[in-house]
Amino acid sequence: MTLAQAQSFFDAYAAAFSARDMDAIVDAWTYPCLITQRAASFAFPDRDSFHKNVSSLDGFYVRQGVAKASGTVRQVAEPHDGVAIVEVDYELADASGQRIVAWPTTYTLRRNKTGAWKACFAIADGEVAAWAARGTPLGAKN
């Protein structure tokens, strides 16, 4: 995976969050998949379970005033054919473009049988820490 391919993938992924297109978000992943953070890991066996998770995350983002997501790929490594480790810097902004929160995330992507890149693993420590530092931890009802 080239840097340009990774940036294209994550541009589409961030655009899906901005558009609140949960189907496009879950289509960017392969199943089962895993999202891990320092305190816990969450395995999603199928598309439906992941859809429920990102829909809940979207509700949290809406309550925080998020209107736009962007992601800048910082680094790509392809340790094996068809496997990429991608570091992405995210930023979420309100409708006026003011930054709400930013953080880094590391993903592992795999090329599927049709040749498409799909995420299968993410380390969410950066996002968890960013929201906690803002005083609105992930999962907060506010």
Rank of each mutant, 00 (worst) to 15 (best):
V66N: 08
A67E: 12
A67G: 07
K68I: 11
K68Y: 15
A69W: 15
A69I: 07
S70H: 11
S70E: 14
S70F: 11
G71I: 03
T72Q: 11
T72W: 03
T72Y: 04
R74V: 10
R74L: 09
Q75R: 02
Q75S: 03
V76A: 12
V76E: 09
A77P: 00
A77N: 10
A77S: 12
E78C: 13
E78L: 04
P79N: 01
P79Q: 03
P79Y: 05
H80V: 14
D81S: 14
G82P: 09
V83Y: 04
E87Y: 00
V88Y: 07
V88R: 03
V88D: 07
D89G: 02
D89W: 11
E91H: 09
L92R: 11
L92K: 13
L92F: 15
A95Q: 12
S96T: 15
G97E: 15
G97C: 14
G97P: 09
Q98R: 12
R99E: 14
I100G: 04
I100P: 03
V101P: 00
A102D: 13
W103T: 01
W103C: 04
W103D: 04
P104Y: 03
T106V: 12
T106S: 05
Y107P: 03
Y107A: 07
L109D: 07
L109V: 04
R110M: 07
R110V: 10
R110A: 01
R110D: 00
R110I: 08
R110T: 08
N112I: 01
K113C: 05
K113W: 13
K113D: 15
T114V: 08
T114N: 03
T114A: 12
G115E: 02
A116C: 01
A116E: 01
K118C: 13
K118M: 13
K118T: 00
A119W: 01
A119V: 09
A119C: 06
C120S: 08
C120I: 14
F121V: 07
I123D: 10
I123N: 12
I123H: 09
A124V: 03
A124M: 06
D125H: 03
D125Q: 06
D125Y: 03
D125G: 04
G126R: 05
E127R: 10
E127P: 02
V128N: 05
A129Y: 08
A129N: 06
A129S: 06
A130L: 12
A130T: 09
A130S: 13
A132I: 02
A132W: 10
A133G: 08
A133V: 04
R134M: 14
R134Q: 12
